[in-house]
Design a protein around this nucleic acid. Structure first.
Lengths: 315, 315
DNA sequence: ATGAAAGCGCTAACAC
DNA sequence: GTGTTAGCGCTTTCAT
């Protein structure tokens, strides 16, 4: 029996006689044969690999997204090649190049800001690409996310509606290319003429830096009555710090977060936040990509998953 | 100029004349040539891919580990193929097969419990393998982790030393093959003759189920004075629930967690826990693997990263 | 329903 | 320091 028959028995069972197919399967089981997908990829020019690039895997923000991508990609018979760029666009470029060199069938990247060289290479590769965690007028190709600007603006409006008058926006380092900036801009837009102080911590956006931030904020401007944090992790850290110091929230200062991470509903008092689903972003991005790869017309190349202000006790 | 010269200019610049090398680089830049690593892998029989399998990516437990693997693997010039099996050994087998079929140069798996077929295939493949998050007498090949049994036992001894007399062990579903069981066994061993109640929540091991668990526990046995949770996420959820109900911790009940996740130090009261480093486990596992692949003798095939009981305020 | 021939794009091995 | 030859293990294409 020739190699091609084995290949067909595995990939297109219908095109092989029932008896032949069974013989092949028996032999495979006996010999412990494992098809070489590398050779297959070279010959067929399809690797069944999806490359995914996130800023970071640790932390509640993108871990869910990676999980969503992993689940969807494996369900569709693909494998996930993963890279983290640490908010460095140069590192993102290197990863894109490496993944293209690996002949990934498609790529998922985070955000809409990329180095010019990255855009160029991506376009030249002709690969399907999904951008995530944002919504842009002109995606590279496909995009799934939500408007960070509008989400943050909605939170500012919510806080104003609740009667808070002196607002603060708190984030980690404000980079040119992450999602802190549109959130800051959106919050500014929503704050309108209300007093607004901004604080950008240089040492991260984790719970500890949230705790430091709330103390620093109130030292700098004791009259602030509501603080919006760029993510729930920071916000929860701030909330705990207030508890520790006996500052009631929202009595002393109201606190709001972003993301509706697990911690948001669990802390006491429960955290007012903006709900978005990282898992769903990852899942949808992967499904759009694999649908396109299966030759299906992807009608909605721009998927806005939206957001929702979740009013809880902290603000 | 022949193809092999280009290949050498890229992979072993020293073996090519300086001038030739520069000409190659210029041409590559001009043409936008991207070497096909799939073809390279087929020809050289080395893919420079590391396959990694974790139970889940979401959640504080393994996200750090994946980050550590990603960082180390990329630093060593490899790519990371990632899969999550959701605590299903059958799914683990499927991933192992797929990664071997992809001709990964080595594999990182979680834990020491694997389906017989998985062990067989792994052995037959001859690939270097690192098991993680545990320590076993007889690893498949290499292993990096710590003793879950001893870590949990140490926590029981700590609680006893602090004067608690009626202990509880709380986990999510107790599977045959995850790390809840050795922790439970270790805690039992450490509890000796002290009263011990065990509670296994069926619906997960997240903050919400931790919150439910502490209520259920104290309803069932109001005299319990210290509860040890299988991870910090559950413990933090329980802690918050106590705060919400006005139950002082440790006044009403002491609470201890496992992992020293970010949340442990940040909650109020700060959480007593067992410190281990998921990031370091991932990083070391990847480095052991790449060292072996580089032909280096890996002297310590068994790396015990240890643990440390961190006494804070909650217990 | 099955097979033969060719070749995917690279690198190992061996010249020169 | 560079080139030639062969072949990695599959799949494509075209026959039969």
């Amino acid at each position: 029996m020739s190699a091609i028959t084995v290949s067909r028995a595995l990939r297109e069972p219908a095109r092989v006689a029932e008896e032949t197919r069974r013989a092949v399967l028996r032999a495979i089981a006996r010999l412990g044969y494992v098809p070489d997908l590398v050779a297959g990829a070279l010959a067929s020019r399809r690797s069944r690999i999806v490359g995914a690039i996130v800023p970071t895997i640790a932390g509640a923000m993108f871990a869910d997204t990676v999980q969503g991508m992993s689940d969807a990609v494996h369900a569709e018979g693909y494998q996930l090649l993963l890279g983290a760029h640490g908010y460095d666009l140069g590192a993102e470029l290197a990863l894109v190049q490496a993944f293209i060199g690996r002949r990934a069938d498609g790529l998922i990247v985070t955000g809409v800001q990329h180095a010019p060289a990255t855009r160029r290479i991506l376009a030249a590769s002709g690969l399907p690409v999904v951008e995530t965690w944002d919504i842009g007028r002109r995606p590279l190709d496909m995009i799934v996310g939500f408007s960070n600007f509008r989400a943050a603006r909605a939170m500012a409006e919510y806080l104003l509606a609740r009667g808070y008058r002196r607002l603060a926006f708190i984030s980690g380092p404000l980079r040119a290319h992450d999602r802190s900036r549109p959130r800051r801009d959106g919050f500014r837009a929503g704050a309108r003429h209300a007093a607004l102080v901004e604080l950008h911590m240089t040492d991260g956006s984790d719970m500890r830096s949230g705790a430091k931030a709330i103390v620093e904020l109130l030292a700098r401007d004791p009259k602030v009555d509501a603080a919006f944090f760029v993510n729930d992790t920071m916000a929860a850290g701030a909330l705990m710090e207030c508890t520790r110091r006996g500052w009631p929230t929202p009595g002393r200062v109201a606190i709001a977060g972003f993301g509706d991470f697990e911690v948001a509903a669990a802390v006491a008092p429960a955290l007012t936040t903006v709900r978005i689903s990282g898992y769903e972003i990852g899942r949808r991005a992967a499904l759009m990509l694999t649908a396109r790869l299966a030759g299906k017309e992807v009608s909605h190349a721009i998927v806005d998953l939206g957001f929702e202000v979740v009013a809880r006790d902290s603000a």
